[in-house]
Design a binder for these strands. Structure first.
Lengths: 224, 224
DNA sequence: ATACATCAAGTGGTCTTACCATGTAAAGAA
DNA sequence: TTCTTTACATGGTAAGACCACTTGATGTAT
């Protein structure tokens, strides 16, 4: 049952679409709130709330008494903006997906290495709970929760923050990826491999994870 | 000249302080907007705007018809929350600083390596503009802009997003750090070293940067 | 006794209207 | 020409009313 779209959500999506598509170009001034509210068909307080949210994500810069400026979100945005950008992936540069995969390939081996050094038993426990799952959504949930758990076990509080920023985007992508049986099979093997590595001394966790990421990137190449 | 604090800023700071200090514990319900507005001494629309911003940063979860829930921000927050947390560093866990330094030590060498491979000339140009600066603020500005430039030259759009999230926190820290003459001197040498590495083939940029970060972490140990 | 429907009260969401605070450009005065 | 004042645009805040959703309590039917 599709819920009616609320004015707040509508106006936020509308503004983002117009920013991304160039109606309001980067570094330009938005029309004033009163005009913009009229154009978008919501009231000014509702528009203001949307703008406050957008400003927190880095889409716009609001200064009292001056027109609100549209940011170049690639320049000014924070990582949290990905959550929104992924909804507009068709309007994104072609390299967004490969950039995300590259970023993952760089970061996740480091996280896993820290988890291995600092709290391996929690990861082993988590992986012991793995059962063969054929549902892509369930599978991707398990997979993502593994990344989350590793971030927590890294015992550096910044990694869970980063992984949180990637949750929506990678959930979006994982649903596509794990629809592919080969992807699920490769990851199932990985879970066994990495579980064993976590139980042993002197494992080369970083490289195991990196190789899995690189392999996964190749599977992505087959998919797109 | 100290500007009067605005209701919006006041109420946001007030809520954050109360969340961090446990007045509104993690996973608890906030009082309703009408009560909260009265408690904090602002009107409901002003409070709502603040809550919308806080929700975007991951501090609270707002659902229509239900009480607003205070998140465990370490669990639910994104990297952008650091910008706020750094203002409350005295209330933060003791390992926040060392975690930030560790994170930097992991990530920045990777960024530099990509910049070296993909767009070294822009970094060389930037570093050619380096002059001996004794003003800690100017110095830290130069230093941070170098990180930003490297993130851009990595040609992975995610890295500038991450660096943006770190801008406020690291600017805060850098002002302390570069007040120390030894810190400025060490970085000045690094700029020359890394500039040379960027002009040569087969440089071990990743390890040069990592060693500088590790050394910098040792200087931090002397400072705190 | 149990299950379902209804209602009330609490929650957040939106709208209307009015006024305040800041920034900036143009006009007027020196 | 420079400085000051004014007007108008901008964003910020307030007050009040009503709408939409959630949830628990109460009443009714089986």
């Amino acid at each position: 049952m599709q819920k009616p779209i609320k004015p707040a959500e509508f106006v936020e999506n509308s503004l983002i679409t117009d920013i991304i598509s160039g109606v309001y170009p980067k570094n330009s001034k938005l029309p004033g709130e009163r005009v913009l509210a009229e154009k978008t068909g919501v009231t000014r307080p509702t528009l203001r709330e949307a703008l406050q949210r957008l400003s927190r994500d880095g889409w716009v810069t609001i200064n009292h008494g001056k027109s609100t400026i549209v940011n170049d979100f690639w320049e000014k945005g924070g990582l949290g903006i990905l959550r929104t950008l992924i909804k507009y992936i068709d309007l994104m540069p072609d390299n967004l997906l490969s950039s995300m995969l590259e970023f993952r390939t760089i970061l996740f081996p480091e996280i896993a290495e820290l988890a291995y050094k600092r709290k391996p038993e929690a990861i082993i426990n988590y992986l012991d709970g793995f059962k063969q799952i054929d549902d892509p959504e369930k599978f991707s949930e398990f997979d993502w929760n593994l990344q989350l758990e590793m971030a927590r076990c890294s015992q550096n509080p910044l990694f869970p923050l980063i992984v949180n920023d990637f949750t929506t985007p990678f959930n979006h992508l994982a649903k596509i990826y794990f629809r592919y049986k080969k992807a699920r099979d490769v990851s199932s093997i990985y879970y066994k491999t990495i579980r064993d590595a976590f139980t042993e001394k002197d494992s080369d966790v970083k490289n195991i994870v990196r190789e899995v990421m690189i392999n996964s990137n190749l599977i992505w190449d087959e998919l797109v």
